[in-house]
Amino acid sequence: MPDPQAPSLMTPADIDDNELVEQAVNGDVNAFNGLVLRYQDRIYSIAYRIMGEPDGAADMTQDAFINAYRKLDTYRGGSFVGWMGRIVTNTCYDELRKRRRRPQTAFEDLPGGDADDGPPIASDSITPEEAALQSDLQQAIADCIRALNDDQRVVMVLSDIQHQSYQEIAETMNLNIGTVKSRLSRARVSVRNCLQAVQELLPPEFRLGDEE
């Protein structure tokens, strides 16, 4: 019996995603864990961008992998990481809606709660180590994304971090394409306005609005 705690030993990098999926569907948890190890950074990143803080992102990532394993038989081929990204996005979005129904902290009370309020204040939910790993610019971008409302943020993450098409986003979020377009454009304008407040962080080629 292979040790489930050391699945990386079981899954050489050259095994195809779909092959691992096939083995996992047949009950091989370790095959699935090969996929987990392969894509956990990606999936965690998506969760982190949507949730805006590491603990919730970790919980959602774990839940998403468990959910994915349970409904692996609904995976219809294509990009596994794309499929997985939609699952983690929905897991996060469900959690955010749940939290919205029973808010623990009024979002308006948090610093940087509105994208138009000016430069966001760095969230204290990020550990100093994490912050050190991110450049100031990345931190600023992340904070501006974090300051979006849930609906806009999820659509932006799907589009600009997961690179999904409008059609795919519409299917993932169960929205019509018009709503996707409008949420995405509002999100981009909000982030743009937010970043303009930290112009000095931007590299010259990214000075927003500079014509020349």
């Binding site: 489930p4 705690q5 699945p7 948890v29 699935f32 864990n33 987990v36 190890l37 956990q40 950074d41 990606r42 999936i43 965690y44 990143s45 982190y48 961008r49 590491p54 970790a58 990532t61 774990q62 992998f65 468990i66 394993y69 994490e130 790993l133 990345q138 971008i141 992340a142 971090i161």
Partner: peptide, 14 residues
């Protein structure tokens, strides 16, 4: 934006 590194492994146990 680069991916964030996962803080731990999310492998599943049986």
């Amino acid at each position: 934006l680069p991916d964030v590194r996962a803080p731990r492994n999310f492998t599943l146990t049986p």
